[in-house]
Structures are given as C-alpha cells and as structure tokens.
Amino acid sequence: MAYSNKVLDHYERPRNIGALDRNDPNVGTGIVGAPECGDVMKLQVKVDDANRIVDAKFKTFGCGSAIASSSLATEWVKGKTLDEALGIKNTDIVKELSLPPVKIHCSVLAEDAIRAAIADVKKKKTGGAVPSGSEAQATA
C-alpha cells in the first residue's frame, strides 16, 4: 500500500504538534479514540474573544494517515470561527489526503477531535451544556 504524497508530507513535517494549556479558559481540548483501537488523537484549539480559532495543536498516536488527518485538521481550523470549524467534514479530509477506504476512520476521528475540542471550549465559555454529538471525549 502506497501513501499519498500529502499523507507523506504531513507525516514528515507534521504541522502544529504540541500542547496548549488545557486549563486556559480560551483553550478547548478534545481527546478521541482509544489505544486498543490503534489510534488516539488529542486536538486543542485556542480562541480569541470573537470565538475565532487563533491557534491549534495536536498530538496523535496512530498510523500515518491518522497523523496526517489530525495535522491537516489543525491547519484547517486555524483562522476559522468555532461555527465555521464545525463545518469541516471528514469527507473533506479524505479528499485532500486521498485516503483509501481502509483509512476513512482516521478522517472520522479527526472530525470527532475537532468537534470535541470545540465543544470543550464552548462549554468553558458558556459554562453551559455540551451540544450533542461531541461526547466523544476521553476523561482521565
């Protein structure tokens, strides 16, 4: 199985690796997946007062396609408002990275990670309820 050049590029030069302070009220953290399934993604977003994403970081345990999907996700969410970022679909990631069918779950996980991170920061901002569909977050 050969990897697409874009997957290789993200694997070789992953964008936005690292961590943001998860206790910062402007930072949302999403952790999705499970080690026994072979992939865990942690994606973090930092927003400004206008709820625009000014920074994003990720760490991923997973195959090259999982690393590339999360790397791409951090690139794409930067500069978007939270609601705009929710518009990113896994199918967009599949298309951009030319993921084969067996790797579609990597893109689903990346979408889940974006949603989980956004839900977390929204919750912090409003102190309110978590919107549905974003419960995919691990808790230590």
């Binding site: 999705v32 997946g33 499970a34 889940d112 995919a136 691990a138 230590a140």
Partner: peptide, 16 residues
C-alpha cells in the same frame, strides 16, 4: 499522559 503520571489503563476512552 504517561509523562504526566496518568495511568493509561484507568482512562475511560471513547471507543469508536
């Protein structure tokens, strides 16, 4: 997480 001292086996992972 391991470096932070979190025991990975106690984490409640979101299975997918």
């Amino acid at each position: 997480m391991a470096a932070e001292g979190i025991d990975l086996s106690t984490v409640e992972w979101a299975h997918h």
